[in-house]
Design a protein around this nucleic acid. Structure first.
Length: 484
DNA sequence: CTATGGCACGGATT
DNA sequence: AATCCGTGCCATAG
């Protein structure tokens, strides 16, 4: 991607517009690269460092992460726990923990794309089988506050006060959750997670006492000291310690949530994927003036660019000494400066556009935010462009490759707001879940029309297939209504 | 005759 | 200009 192209020849289009357009359509990852490249090329540009959340990598303007904050309040205290294991993994082995590395370096988004249903659904499905309805409520809360890595990052005391139950009860539920399918889910950190898996293996007959000792007592130290020292501390030989480490690497997964645990599923009823870092966060904020929602652009806070003061000063000095003249490369200095200003302006334009667009969408899709997919109102990019008074291609660019985090914590593509099919699909699922006799596609289309969605019968057929629902005749026979 | 899937056209998106 | 998606028309299966 060339950001450093000379201003275009076309007279009607300004360099500003070209750069702004280009930056607007980049994903957050690409933007990061573009900024890095520009920083490397342009000495006049300065980037203020911003603290990042150790878990999701989002910028943290304050001491908490805007992404994890809802619904899970994640505090910075987590960082100390994460740091050492991460470093250790990096050092010890790049293969078995490569997933974490990849996520951390954000170079490969697809490795983080998950499977057919969300992890939360999978967990809740299991929980429903074993818990009373009251405990299920608590468990649901806990599941929803798991972070991207499947760790439990909420304070047990918070839960006890929210639900008004005593602490041991919550802890029982948590330890129950940790036995669920991705074993070690809902642990508080990597160390606890590994210990749980180790315990699980022990029940299955695979015991490794040394591994347990190492993880339990020397986990943090592993990253700092040579393995020999750890071996000595637990009273083992270096070879035994190596074997234990090998065992850990082969049998344990520090981030069970990343595993493709839904491998053996039948045809996917829905494809809910886990998406990477959000570009826009919509948070509940009853006090706010925007009708109860707050828009945050985490990346806008991460990339605080400005023209370097030292660059300006150096330029002034050179001018004062008359050493700087246009003939001998002085134009270079001016060019860098102009380019830096242009770049900054363009980036800011991106934030303005995204923010404006988000405000508008939130306002328009209020019901969707409050009540879910079913209530997504049809909206085309062209309509929105008219609403906010920009060209439709601008909206198109702004929507491309962006992700939004909803108040409920779901992260979805921004384009979803413009996809009329999601609402209809939801209603189709609903209709079929409620049907007593299998409804034909035509009858479904009628039902949809009654609810205000006028959809061709042919299209119903396509959606039904996309949802993995059999045709009416087959439903009659096999009763394979997907669990809603 | 009814319910569905295949193919192709036209409008929207990129 | 190239591509995706909803829809209409038609053939086929029951």
């Amino acid at each position: 991607m060339e950001l450093s192209q000379a201003p275009e020849q076309r007279p009607t289009i300004t360099p500003q517009l070209i750069m702004a357009n280009m930056l607007l359509q980049l994903s957050s990852t690409e933007l990061e690269q573009a900024i890095a490249q520009e920083m490397a090329e342009n000495p006049a540009l300065e980037l203020l460092e911003v603290q990042r959340c150790p878990k999701c990598g989002l910028a943290m303007p304050d001491d908490y992460c805007p992404s994890c904050a809802s619904p899970a309040r994640a505090r910075l205290g987590f960082q100390a726990e994460m740091e050492n294991p991460a470093r250790w993994e990096y050092r010890v082995d790049r293969t078995s923990f490569s997933e974490y590395d990849a996520a951390d370096e954000r170079d490969d988004l697809t490795s983080r794309l998950a499977s057919n249903t969300t992890l939360a659904d999978h967990l809740l499905h299991q929980l429903r089988l074993s818990l009373s309805s009251r405990d299920l409520q608590i468990a649901t809360y806990l599941v929803e506050s798991l972070d991207d890595h499947g760790f439990l990052c909420c304070d047990p005391d918070e839960v006890t006060s929210v639900f008004g139950v005593d602490r041991t009860r919550v802890e029982n539920i948590v330890s129950g959750m940790q036995e669920l399918d991705p074993v070690g889910i809902a642990a508080r950190d990597v160390r606890e997670c590994l210990l749980i898996q180790l315990e699980h293996l022990r029940h299955e007959g695979a015991e490794q006492p040394l591994a347990k000792a190492i993880i339990q007592d020397h986990w943090e130290a592993l990253g700092r000291q040579p393995l020999a020292q750890t071996a000595k501390a637990v009273g083992a030989t270096i070879d035994e310690a190596r074997a234990a480490m090998q065992f850990i690497k082969n049998n344990l997964n520090p981030f069970p949530a990343h595993a493709h645990w839904a491998s053996g599923h039948e045809s996917p009823p829905q494809r809910t994927t886990i998406y990477p870092r959000p570009d826009i966060i919509i948070a509940n904020s009853p006090a706010s003036s925007n009708g109860g929602y707050e828009i945050e652009l985490p990346e806008a806070q991460a990339y605080r660019l400005r023209v370097s003061a030292s660059y300006l000063k150096a330029m002034e000095d050179l001018k004062a000494n008359k050493t700087l003249s246009a003939e001998e490369g002085g134009g270079q200095w001016e060019a860098f400066l102009a380019k830096a200003q242009l770049f900054i302006k363009s980036i800011e334009q991106r934030w303005r556009t995204l923010h404006h667009l988000a405000l508008c969408v939130v306002n328009y899709q209020r019901d969707f935010l409050a009540y879910g997919d079913r209530y997504l109102r049809p909206l085309t990019r062209a309509e929105l462009a008219a609403m906010i008074g920009v060209h439709e291609s601008t909206v198109s660019r702004a929507v491309a490759n962006k992700y939004v985090q909803l108040p409920c914590g779901r992260i979805i593509p921004l384009a979803r707001f413009f996809d009329s099919s999601t609402a209809v699909k939801e209603i189709i699922k609903e209709l079929i879940a409620q049907e007593s006799e299998p409804l034909s596609d035509r009858e479904i289309a009628e039902g949809l029309a009654q609810r205000g969605h006028h959809i061709a019968r042919r299209t119903v057929s396509k959606y039904r297939n996309a949802l993995g629902i059999l045709p009416a005749s087959l439903r009659r026979r096999y009763r394979t209504v997907p669990t809603a």
